[in-house]
Every structure is written in structure tokens, then in C-alpha cells.
Design a binder for these strands. Sequence first.
DNA 1: GGTGTAGAGG
DNA 2: CCTCTACACC
Lengths: 260, 260
Amino acid sequence: MKIVSWNINSVRFRIAIVEQFLREAEPDVLCLQETKVIDADFPFAMFRSLGYDHIVIHGQRMHHGVATLSRVPIVADDRFDWQANAEARHVGVRLPNGVRLENVYVPAGGDVPDREVNPKFGQKLDFVARMIDWSRGLDMPTILTGDFNIAPLPSDVWSHKALLKTVSHTPIEVEALDQLQASNDWVDLGRHFHPAPARLHTWWSYRSPDWTVNDRGRRLDHMWATADVAKTATAHTVFEACRSWLSPSDHVPIMTEFDF
Amino acid sequence: MKIVSWNINSVRFRIAIVEQFLREAEPDVLCLQETKVIDADFPFAMFRSLGYDHIVIHGQRMHHGVATLSRVPIVADDRFDWQANAEARHVGVRLPNGVRLENVYVPAGGDVPDREVNPKFGQKLDFVARMIDWSRGLDMPTILTGDFNIAPLPSDVWSHKALLKTVSHTPIEVEALDQLQASNDWVDLGRHFHPAPARLHTWWSYRSPDWTVNDRGRRLDHMWATADVAKTATAHTVFEACRSWLSPSDHVPIMTEFDF
DNA sequence: GGTGTAGAGG
DNA sequence: CCTCTACACC
């Protein structure tokens, strides 16, 4: 079972490269974030044409929006509002073996890492705090994946020093993500298969004509699993090449293979 | 001497097909309307690379804007404000033989053909009225070309009956254009070479997935010359095929060949 | 239907 | 840098 997470930055605008990726990587399940489309306008046709007939979406107008698409049967499960503002940032499904798959898009958090000056930063921390509450009570085999918008380890960013005051890598965010991981027996599958300080970036800003020149990447996208599920994982891949495809997302897909 | 007029609907967005056209038709002079670019951002490079080194532009932000580009020497001449509102809708040049070439973009005139309800319609009629004043005093060999936004003859539109109340083909606009033509010894070179009711449309709305299906064209673009110049004209061509090029303008180029 | 603008959000 | 929305204008 191959499970992918990809912040696609508009699934309609990106439909061609999503198709290209699905044909090449052939995942069983695809978790998308930032679909930026209401459910009525979701581009079902391409996915169905490739056999992804099981589609669970939680969209909204303009921003955010998540979707989980599968060629094996999945069942819609929960939809948490971890930001308590009705933004479409989570959708959960059950896989055929009963494992829960939680697809999440953590808020970016604005520019200034200060709750007072920048309310978006506070909302991001609150979002993770509510994820921690949920995680503590969790007692089922679960995969938690998506765009967490936090790069926890020094080797998860192109320069630990340069980014200590940059939202996504500030100590307070890293501490929050560490607490989330400690709140259950979560395994960070990316680092499980590619221990730090291996290169494992999943995002490069658009604000550079050529992302490969300075190569200022960050690991914002993650695939976690509870220990019972994690021990069935056999591989984890970051599809860095997708960042150079035509009209790319600023994020690349990550994929974990499970032995079930 | 081959002279072309083309409403290009953004010269920057359309730069590829302009280049394609110049390579295929090889005009000596190109009059563009709706360049939609300020002079500082005009895409000079492509034109210069093809030998169009003589460039006289009258641009503005956002809307309108005209440009005359030539591979034979031209000299900037007048810039009339026939709408008395500082919109960039005209630029005049002198050709090497002294003939004046007036490149004009007549206002579209809005939707409702009523001066009271729709001020844009009044501005269009006022614009033509000022052209008539100018034309009456004209005593030099002159070519007047551009997007006139009026289709004067019944055969200049896909349905005379259906368009009698549609701006561009209303009797009051046709009457204004007739007066303009009568105000000097103007020859309508399109109809000179392709007498009515020959097909001679130059514009098809974007509001149809396939312009060829209903083929609801109009002749909005014109090339006129005073009689002395007109008698040196040898051919007139409408490049209808350009309407099917990739990412086309809604107007196609028209070209007159002169024996000078 | 298509183009330009502006601002929000990333 | 890139996407979305909304609007003006054609």
C-alpha cells in the first residue's frame, strides 16, 4: 500500500502534473492539501479515469481544502476543525484494513512569529494544541500526514541559524510539534527511513526563479504513523523532481510504502 | 509597401503570435491597437529582432494603447485625443514617401446604443465627430487605419437584421462612419478590393468556444486611404486564419499592399 | 470568452 | 513568485 501526501496549491490548476505523478508513482492513496476548490467543482474526472474512484473531499472556496483519493475502498471518517474557524484543513478516512488516515493542512501562520502582533501565528499554535488533545485520546492504528508547515529538525531546513526566527522553524513551533509527536507513539516515517541529517526537504519557495540555485528547502510535509502501523512501513520517498515539473506546486509529494 | 493593422488585445500576452504573423506576412509597417502596455514595458526586443527598428508608440496602463512598428524609416507625427479624455487611441507617423499613416482605435462604445443610458456610446460618437472635423481639414496623402469598431455595410456583419440594435452596427454609427468617409476623398480599401457583399470579417467574439461554428463575424477593422494614395494600392488581405492560432486576439490582421 | 488591474494569502 | 477573488472593459 503506497500512500502519498502532496500540498498541490490548487488541484484544478495543477491537474496535469497530478495526473503525471499518479501515472509515474502509482500510489494507492493520495492525500492532497490546498485543493482550493469547492466540492462541486472538484476535478473528479481525471482521478476516476486513473482508477481513483474513492474520493473523500473537504473543500472550500478560495483557500485551503483537502482531499483524499484512493483506488482501494476508503470510508469517510472524521473532519476535525482544529482551528475552530470552519476552515477546511482536515479530512479523515478509514483504509480497508481499518487503519485511520488523517489528512491535515496546518495553517502557515503568517510572517511574524508573535501571537500578539500576528493572530495567524497564534491560530497555528492553537491548531497544533488541539491536535495534541486529539492525539492524546487516540487509541487506534493511525496514519497522520499532510502539510504540517513546521520543519522540526535543524537538518529539516536549508539553514537552521538563518531560520530560527522564520515561521515554520521557530523554537515554539518545533516545541509544539515535538509535543504532538510525544502525545502518542508516533513515528516520523520520513526521518525513520532517512535519519537526520539526511536531506529531506519537501518545499521550496516560489520566490526564486530557479529553486535549485540556492536550494533553500524546508521539510514541511510529513507522514507519521502510530507504532503499530509504522512497523509495517517499508520505504519512504520524497519526489524532489516534481519541483521542476511544468507549473509546479511549491511542495513536492512524499510517499510511504506499507506492507499491508 | 505592405501595411498591416491589427487589434492585438495585449501585445505582451500575444507576443508569440505577433512574431509568427510578422515572419509569415512580412509587412513593412504594423499598426497595433489595444497594446495594453505603458511605453516603458513595451516588448521592443522581439520587434527589433525581426528588423522592426522604427517604433512609435502611444501606450497607457491597462486599456487601449496603440503602436506603429516599421522596418522602413518612419517619423513620429501627431497624437490626436479625439475622445478628449487622454486615452491612448491614436498615433500618427510619416512614411518615407511623406504619406501620413494614422493608426486609430475607436472606442467600442459599451453595450447599449443610447447616449443617455450609456455614456460610452456618446463618447464613441463624439470621437468619430472629432475625426470628421480633422478629416475635413486634411490636405495631405494619408492612410487611416485601425479598429474603427463600426461595421458599416449589411455584409460587414453576420446578420444585418440581428445586429441593427447592436453597438458597432447601429444606423447612427454607420451614418457617422459614412460622414467620416464623405468628409474627404477616402477610399475604403477593403471594399475596394473585395466589393460588398464579399465576406470580409475581421473580428469574432471570444464568447463562443469555436468561432467557426456560428461564424458570427463583423468587419470592425479598416484601412482607408485618400484617393491619391489609394490608387497606388494593389491588394488587400484579411488574415482570417489568425483567429484560430493559439491564444488568439479576437481581431485578425488586415493588410494592404501599396505600389510605393 | 478573454485581458488587465488590485489585494489577500502562501 | 504564484494562486485565488473581484472588477472593468472588450
